[in-house]
Design a protein around this nucleic acid. Structure first.
Lengths: 219, 219
DNA sequence: ATCACTTTTAACTAGCCGTTACATTTCAAA
DNA sequence: TTTGAAATGTAACGGCTAGTTAAAAGTGAT
C-alpha cells in the first residue's frame, strides 16, 4: 500500500474525469433495468446501454452483477428515505400530523414506483441483500421514531386511544400505500384500470387516511 | 384430424401411463420453483429435478418455459379461488359476514405464500401473462359478487353506511392480507421477525378486522 | 400388426456473465 | 517536465449455463 494516494475529495473539484458521477450514472441505469426485469432478468449489457459509459466500467467499479444490485438497492432506499425527511410534522396536533403522514406516504409511494419494484424484487429474494446491508437498516429507524413521537403526543392529548404500537401502525400505513403501487398491474388487470385513475386514487387516499384515523381515535 | 381418438376419460382408468398426472406433477414442481426464484430466475433443470419425470416431458406437454409459467399461474389462481369457495356466509348478518370474510382472507393468504409469490412475480412482469388468460379473469368475479351481496344486506339492515364500493372494499382487504405475506422478508429484516410470530399475527388479524368494520359501519 | 401417444437419452445452440488485452486520457506529485 | 497511478474506451472471447430439440424406443388401444 502506498501512502501517497491523492486526496479524492480535493481532486474531484476540478476534474473532468469524475468517478463519482460515473458511478451514479451506472446506478441510475441499473435501477431502471433492475426495477424493470428483476435481478436475474436484468442484462448487464442492457444496463450498460443505458449508461453514458461502458460495460467495462460497471465491472471496474462494482465487481459483479450481485454487488451492483446490492448497491442499487442501497441507493434506492437512501433516495426515498431522503425524500421523506422533507415532511415536517412538528407543529401539528397528533391527529393532523398522522393524517398528513398517511397522505404523504401514499403519495410518496406512488411517486416512486421503481423503488417499490426494487423492494418487491428484494422480497422475492427473501431480503437476502437487504439483510447484508447495515446501511439500509439504519435508515429505517427514522420512520418508527416519527410515529412513536406522534403516538405519544396523541395519547397525552387524549386524541388517540392508548396502547398503540408504532410498528403495527407503520405496517398498516405501509401495507396500503405499498400495495397500491406494487399490485397495480394484476389488480387493474382483474378489476379494471379505472381504479387507478386520478380521481379514484384521490378518493382512495382519503379513505385510507380515514381508516387509519378512525382506528387510532379514542373509541 | 382422425376421429378414432381414444376416449381419454375411459382410457385413463386402467392405464399406467397417465398424462394428466404427469402434467399435474410438473405444474406442482413448477409452482414451487417459480414461486421461489421468479420467471427468469427459475431453472428448467431445477423444475425437472423436482418432478418424477424428465425435462423433456416439460417441453412435450408445455412447449416452452413461458407457457409453463402461464399455466402454473392459472393453476395457482384456480386452486386458491377454489379454497375460497369453502367460505359460507349465507346465514350471517352483514357485519358478521364481513368480519368472517376479512379474517378468512387474512388466514387464507398466510396459508398460501406460494400463490402470493406468484402474484408478486406476475406484478413484476406487469401482469403480462394474467392479461392473456381468460381463465383467470373469470375466476375473480366471485370475490366481488360476494362483497356486493354483503354490502347490499348491510345497507338494507342499516349496519353499513351507504355508498360503499365493493371493489374499494376488496382492495382494502386484499392490501393488508397480501402485504402481510408478500413483504414479510423485507419488513421483518427491517423491523424484526417477532412481528410475524403467532400471537402478534393474531393480534394484527383482529386489528385489521376492526379497521374494516369501523370503516364500513354507519358513523 | 398398426399407429398414435408417451417417454428416454443425449446432444445442440444461443445467450450472457465475466474477463482480458491493449491503447489512451487525465491529472497529481516528484 | 517527467513519472505514474487512476480512469476510460474499444473490442473481443471464453466458458458455462440453460432453454430447446433430434432421434429412437416403449406403451397400449383397436
Amino acid at each position: 500500500m502506498t501512502n501517497t494516494l491523492p486526496n479524492k475529495e480535493k481532486r474531484s473539484k476540478n476534474w473532468k474525469q469524475n468517478p463519482e458521477a460515473v458511478k451514479r450514472d451506472i446506478l441510475k441505469a441499473a435501477m431502471k433495468v433492475f426495477a424493470l426485469h428483476g435481478l436475474s432478468g436484468a442484462r448487464i449489457d442492457e444496463i450498460a446501454a443505458e449508461t453514458k459509459t461502458s460495460k467495462r466500467m460497471i465491472y471496474y467499479y462494482f465487481g459483479d452483477k450481485e454487488q451492483l444490485y446490492a448497491q442499487t438497492l442501497e441507493m434506492a432506499y437512501a433516495t426515498v428515505r431522503d425524500g421523506e425527511k422533507k415532511l415536517d410534522l412538528a407543529g401539528l396536533p397528533a391527529a393532523k400530523a398522522l393524517a398528513k403522514l398517511v397522505g404523504f406516504t401514499f403519495d410518496h409511494h406512488r411517486k416512486h414506483p421503481d423503488f417499490i419494484r426494487m423492494v418487491m424484487i428484494e422480497n422475492i429474494h427473501h431480503a437476502d441483500y437487504l439483510l447484508k446491508s447495515d446501511i439500509i437498516r439504519n435508515l429505517n429507524s427514522g420512520a418508527i421514531e416519527n410515529l412513536t413521537e406522534i403516538i405519544k403526543r396523541g395519547e397525552k392529548s387524549g386524541a388517540f386511544r392508548t396502547g398503540l404500537d408504532p410498528i403495527s401502525l407503520h405496517w398498516q400505513i405501509s401495507a396500503m400505500s405499498f400495495f397500491n403501487v406494487s399490485n397495480k398491474p394484476t389488480f387493474s388487470a382483474l378489476f379494471g384500470a379505472s381504479f387507478f385513475a386520478k380521481d379514484q386514487q384521490a378518493e382512495l387516499r382519503e379513505q385510507i387516511v380515514h381508516m387509519i384515523l378512525s382506528h387510532t381515535a379514542k373509541s
